[in-house]
Simulated scan of single mutants.
Amino acid sequence: MKANIFLTFCILIGGIAWYVSDHSKPSFSKSGINSIREDIRSEFSKRDGVRVIDVSLIQESERRLEGFVKLQIDKAEITKDCSASMSMEDGRTIWGCR
Rank of each mutant, 00 (worst) to 15 (best):
A84L: 01
I40N: 04
D48A: 14
R98Y: 15
A3Y: 12
I36H: 06
K70R: 15
R41P: 00
S42P: 01
I16Q: 03
A84P: 02
M86C: 04
P26R: 04
V69W: 02
S56E: 02
S87G: 08
C10H: 08
K46I: 05
H23C: 01
G49E: 00
E38Y: 15
I73Y: 06
R51D: 10
E43V: 11
V50W: 01
I53T: 14
E89R: 14
S21N: 08
E89M: 13
V52D: 01
I36K: 06
G15Q: 03
F9S: 08
I33T: 13
I94L: 12
L7W: 11
C10G: 10
S27E: 05
L12M: 09
E60N: 11
G96P: 00
K2H: 14
I5N: 09
G91F: 05
I73A: 07
S27G: 10
I16C: 07
G14Y: 05
V50Q: 06
A3K: 15
R51C: 12
D48N: 11
R63Y: 02
A17E: 00
C82P: 04
W18Y: 15
D90C: 05
I33G: 10
S42H: 11
S27A: 13
P26N: 04
S87A: 12
V50C: 07
I36G: 12
G67N: 03
Y19L: 01
I40S: 06
F9G: 08
R63D: 00
V69D: 00
S83V: 11
I40H: 05
T93P: 01
R63G: 03
M86K: 06
S42K: 08
S29F: 01
C82V: 07
S31H: 09
S87Y: 10
S21L: 05
L7G: 14
R51I: 14
I40K: 04
W95N: 01
W95C: 03
F6S: 15
D48R: 14
M88E: 12
R41Q: 07
T79M: 11
R37W: 04
K70Q: 14
K25W: 02
D81Q: 15
E89S: 15
L65Y: 03
A3C: 11
W18G: 00
D90K: 10
G32M: 02
E60H: 15
W95F: 07
K25I: 05
I53S: 11
I13R: 07
L71G: 10
D74T: 12
K30E: 12
D81S: 14
G49C: 02
G96S: 10
A3R: 11
E62L: 01
F6G: 08
L65W: 04
D39W: 11
M1D: 09
K80N: 09
S24A: 05
I73H: 06
I33S: 05
Q72V: 13
Q72W: 09
E77G: 08
R47G: 07
E62K: 11
G14C: 08
F6Y: 09
V50N: 03
L57T: 05
G32T: 04
G67K: 05
L57E: 00
T8N: 10
R98N: 13
I78D: 03
I40D: 02
A3F: 12
